[in-house]
């Protein structure tokens, strides 16, 4: 399955937009692809991170028709976290999608 970086980033932005609809003004997330998503200075707490990652998986699914897994032991064991920014997460999604069609294989690669 092919997923372009632009499609992935657009799905990430949709996920942020969806999250922001139910967040108070001061907690809203930026769609700047390079803003810190999860890490020092970020607005996200742990439940927020999971919400965002799952919303991103759902929007990627809407866009591609495939189930992509962005939260896995493999993703978390990376030296550089894929959750550090929207850009990193979109790049990770492209990588997962590119690994022969299934997220599982990419995640364990």
């Amino acid at each position: 399955m092919s997923l372009t970086y632009e499609t992935a980033l657009s799905a990430m932005e949709s996920a942020v937009d969806e999250m922001n609809l139910s967040l108070p003004q001061e907690k809203r997330l930026s769609t700047d692809p390079d803003a810190v998503l999860f890490g020092p200075g970020s607005q996200l707490d742990s439940v927020g991170l999971v919400n965002l990652v799952m919303a991103a998986e759902q929007h990627l699914g809407d866009a591609t028709g495939a189930d992509l897994v962005l939260a896995s032991e493999a993703a978390m064991s990376r030296k550089r976290s894929p959750y550090r920014s929207l850009r990193a997460l979109a790049e990770y999604a492209v990588e997962v999608a590119g690994a022969d069609g299934t997220g599982e294989q990419a995640a364990t690669a």
Partner: peptide
């Protein structure tokens, strides 16, 4: 455990 996981993820 979940805090420890988040700590490693954040790199803090």
């Amino acid at each position: 455990p979940s805090f420890l996981n988040l700590m490693l993820l954040s790199g803090a």
